[in-house]
Amino acid sequence: MTLTAPRRYRFVSQWHIPAETDRCWQALCAVDGWPGWWPGVREAQLFAATGTIAPGTRARIIVGSPLGFHLDFLLSLTTVAAPHAAELAVSGDLCGTGTWRAVPEVSGTRMTFEWAVASRRVAVNACSPLAGWAHRHVMAAGERGLRELLSPRTGSGGC
């Protein structure tokens, strides 16, 4: 991993999932299963000895960027208000914070993901003009995957 001066990124994504908030939360808690429904997530490993999601829970994630490189980072849960919100610390190829919020709606759940991260990787920062596009691509694939996972036709997902 070659390093350079850190470059900061801020991304906000909204998903609308036609499923109850509890089911969305359960699917996100099942981190080990993300590669099965979230294209782009190559590996996901949850480190939760107790089997519960609580502050201090960590997960290693490897994402394949559509720009041709991988991002390897650790998510550490700092705050949780299940099933409506979580805050994360991010370290590794990306460093910073992430926030997830869920709002129940008549037709399902509106989920908002916010990332305020920085990277010192040359490959990442060389592609910074395309970072927003790459992030939207990966997140849109995740939304489609979660919609399919939680569709009444395909199953329930969850932890």
Rank of each mutant, 00 (worst) to 15 (best):
residue 22 D to C: 04
residue 97 T to Q: 10
residue 150 L to D: 03
residue 53 I to A: 13
residue 128 S to G: 03
residue 106 V to N: 09
residue 80 V to S: 13
residue 86 A to W: 02
residue 51 G to Y: 05
residue 21 T to H: 07
residue 87 E to W: 11
residue 110 R to V: 08
residue 38 W to S: 01
residue 9 Y to C: 03
residue 70 H to I: 03
residue 98 G to W: 11
residue 117 V to E: 00
residue 71 L to M: 12
residue 74 L to Q: 08
residue 90 V to D: 04
residue 128 S to E: 09
residue 120 R to T: 13
residue 107 S to F: 02
residue 41 V to S: 07
residue 144 R to D: 04
residue 12 V to P: 06
residue 1 M to S: 14
residue 57 T to N: 15
residue 154 T to A: 06
residue 66 P to A: 10
residue 54 A to H: 12
residue 158 G to W: 08
residue 145 G to S: 12
residue 17 I to K: 08
residue 2 T to C: 01
residue 151 S to K: 08
residue 97 T to W: 05
residue 3 L to P: 00
residue 46 L to Y: 01
residue 50 T to I: 13
residue 2 T to N: 11
residue 56 G to K: 01
residue 106 V to L: 11
residue 38 W to D: 06
residue 70 H to K: 08
residue 86 A to K: 03
residue 155 G to Q: 04
residue 134 A to F: 10
residue 52 T to F: 03
residue 148 E to V: 04
residue 159 C to T: 13
residue 148 E to M: 08
residue 150 L to F: 04
residue 2 T to E: 13
residue 15 W to A: 00
residue 49 A to E: 14
residue 97 T to V: 10
residue 133 W to P: 01
residue 4 T to L: 05
residue 7 R to Y: 08
residue 24 C to R: 01
residue 12 V to F: 06
residue 109 T to N: 04
residue 155 G to R: 05
residue 146 L to P: 01
residue 146 L to W: 03
residue 110 R to P: 00
residue 116 A to C: 11
residue 76 S to M: 02
residue 68 G to S: 07
residue 111 M to T: 14
residue 106 V to T: 14
residue 86 A to S: 05
residue 89 A to C: 05
residue 141 A to S: 10
residue 126 A to N: 06
residue 116 A to I: 12
residue 141 A to M: 04
residue 11 F to M: 07
residue 71 L to C: 02
residue 130 L to V: 02
